[in-house]
Design a binder for these strands. Sequence first.
DNA 1: CCAAAAGTGTTTTTCCTACACCCATGT
DNA 2: ACATGGGTGTAGGAAAAACACTTTTGG
Lengths: 237, 237
Amino acid sequence: MKKEAKNKIPVKTPEHIRFAVLAADIACFTVRDDGKLCVRLVRVDRPPHFPGIPGLPGGLLDPKETAEEAAGRHLFTKANIRLARTYMEQLYTMSRVDRDPRGRVVSVAYLALVPWERLSAQEQAGDKQAWWEEIGKATRLAYDHDEILSIAVRRLRARARYTTILSRIMPLEFSLTELEEAFEKVLGMSIDKRNFRRKILSLEVLVKSDSVRSGGQHRPAQLWKFKNKGVEEIEVL
Amino acid sequence: MKKEAKNKIPVKTPEHIRFAVLAADIACFTVRDDGKLCVRLVRVDRPPHFPGIPGLPGGLLDPKETAEEAAGRHLFTKANIRLARTYMEQLYTMSRVDRDPRGRVVSVAYLALVPWERLSAQEQAGDKQAWWEEIGKATRLAYDHDEILSIAVRRLRARARYTTILSRIMPLEFSLTELEEAFEKVLGMSIDKRNFRRKILSLEVLVKSDSVRSGGQHRPAQLWKFKNKGVEEIEVL
DNA sequence: CCAAAAGTGTTTTTCCTACACCCATGT
DNA sequence: ACATGGGTGTAGGAAAAACACTTTTGG
């Protein structure tokens, strides 16, 4: 019984090994209706090191939540993006000893995607606390968030090539041209229209929607949906 | 000055946010000379939950080291594998609240590779504390190490297909047959000899070595090296 | 009838796959 | 001389890439 007591444990973990604070940071992307690939930034105000400069949304873990739960929570409370509409996957864990000048903070970074169409008007517009920034212009961020962002963009590009991850950045219904443009914006290259359509249709991940989009003074576009709602699968493009 | 004091910080982080213990676990692979893909296991002895059962090597972070440094350190102290010979990349961070029944431990898992040829005789042989286990037989591990191992194998297979990661599991010099066998063991499939040779040579990642291997009673094999020592690159196979 | 984006086929080239025999060496 | 793994070439099919015109609508 004495032995059992010895083994019960870290209700009383020794002080010296509980030196770290755990955090989660989120690189949340969307393709804005002007076609720009954007990331959600927030105003970080932690003088003297980070006085009112931009950064990724994030915050500390609670003792009873996973890193992913903390990421979803802070994405909502700090950046006003609701988890229900977003896809999230773990990206990288940042553990440099001096990454936060105030003390040892280890941060689990997440990659999130949200369809622009499903954001409320207020979420789209942004304000002084949280806003959408074009990828190229999101620079000089707080902490090591430049590095997180660069890892996130690289990962997004890689996964766009061999998974259906872009289904999580598209509206529920979209034209093939819109899907092609999402690929072009994310991959930063132009794609042949006819080859793209043949390829994406041959993968059989899309189904025709009932409706068409009757936009400007031109032929209306057939709308499509992704067949498999949530998940992703291996492919190529 | 008062303001400054307020911003100095987590020399005095509040107790309640320093609830977690940080750890690193390592899935370290090699291809043994019998051709088996193996993972390094250690004996975990933490009764009552894990009394002398196998697990991945790992351990806690020190306050002044990164997760990767801790991984390298524990790989050496717990599993007797020296970092100098190993390639290591971050795999996934496990943060389930109850993953360690003794208290909240968040673990950063790493994938490591080491060439069998570069291990000492003692490291190759293993003992009661640390040994090489074939992938299929490494099961019912401590904590969530089954899950880590499964993620690691999946990742290794994926990266073998589009990077030169296998350069880190091969000896410095090797025959094309040996390289082909490494691919076959890792991917768990057989590969056509002629097609493999044509493909791998067309990628121009190998250079001929000066020497040949004069093994049994047959024609000696030309030996090859990877052109770019350390790094990896995008390819296909 | 004009502007603007939607939609559609064919040809060429590249890459993957399947497949069988000769070569150099040690015993 | 023979057993053993090392080494090579070709032909057919599938997928990728290059490329231009017709269709449908709104103004």
